[in-house]
């Protein structure tokens, strides 16, 4: 019952109008490692406030793309536009174990009342009571929430998430989805989330991109309100998994797992 009511209350937040200037723009972006071209002439635009999920096989270059957007790898003179206000959440929370939780959140912040800002951000993720905890005493889910707080305290225009919930159990993951959506609505930042989980992508994103062969091989825009996507999930999942190189029926894998590349594709 409760859940249904929440569905009805779910309004599509900040619909990305195509007229707005994209906050992220890549034109024919290419990334090579030695002889291997991982990203090959990729075009991408993300609107302000848009929630984009990025799917792709293992090794298809999702992390490589995200690292470029995060500024961790230089784009060496290519046509790449990204906002300077951006923040990353990695799969492993990457908290500094020798700094208390709030100091991790405040890392690199300048100005006065840093602790108050960190405290506010931690309250947002429901960890207002663990301000002075040591990171190594946190559970995986808590550490990931701290990482979210650390990203959001900087008020990024672009939030980059690289499989942030892959290591969490199913129940915690669902609660993290709600949290991410709530935070996204509250902060209005654009989100690019890398995930292996098609269900997760369908549940959260405005738009789903599939990275394959170094480019965006397919994309799906979802206009249905987030709560009402249940019926949509199955056909969309079939379709996306088809694009990713194997239908659930054929792969014999659990139906939310993206299969590894086929021998032909890997060669």
């Amino acid at each position: 019952m409760d859940a249904r009511l929440q569905f009805l209350a779910d309004t599509p937040a900040a619909p990305a109008s195509p007229a707005a200037d994209p906050i992220v723009r890549l034109n024919r972006f290419t990334r090579r490692f030695g002889d291997v071209t991982v990203i090959d002439g990729l075009d991408l635009a993300i609107q302000p406030g848009e929630f984009v999920a990025l799917l792709g096989r293992s090794g298809s270059g999702k992390t490589t793309l995200l690292r470029t957007l995060a500024g961790l790898d230089s784009a060496d003179g290519q046509d790449v536009t990204v906002p300077t206000a951006r923040a990353v959440v990695f799969q492993d929370a990457r908290l500094l174990p020798w700094k208390k939780v709030w100091r991790n959140v405040a890392l690199g912040l300048k100005g006065a009342d840093i602790r108050a800002r960190a405290q506010h951000a931690l309250k947002e993720v429901g960890l207002g009571h663990r301000l002075d905890a040591w990171p190594l005493t946190l559970s995986g889910g808590e550490a990931q929430r701290v990482a979210l707080a650390r990203a959001l305290v900087r008020e990024p225009q672009l939030l980059l998430l690289d499989e942030p919930f892959a290591a969490l159990d199913a129940l915690t993951r669902l609660r993290m989805h709600e949290l991410v959506l709530a935070l996204w609505r509250a902060h209005g930042c654009a989100v690019l989330m890398v995930t292996h989980d098609v269900d997760e992508a369908v549940a959260l994103a405005d738009r789903i991109l599939v990275l394959d062969g170094g480019r965006i091989a397919a994309q799906e825009r979802i206009t249905i309100a987030r709560g009402a996507r249940a019926e949509l999930t199955l056909p969309l999942k079939e379709k996306l998994l088809g694009i990713l190189g194997g239908t659930p029926a054929h792969s014999g894998l659990p139906d939310h797992v993206i299969p590894f590349p086929h021998a032909a594709a890997g060669a």
Binding site: A70, G71, L72, A87, V88, F90, D92, R94, L96, L107, G108, R150, R154
Partner: peptide, 16 residues
Amino acid sequence: VRLLEGARSFGLSQAE
């Protein structure tokens, strides 16, 4: 290096 990278992504300078 992952910790270094994480910290670097938040704009810390070399000295920091």
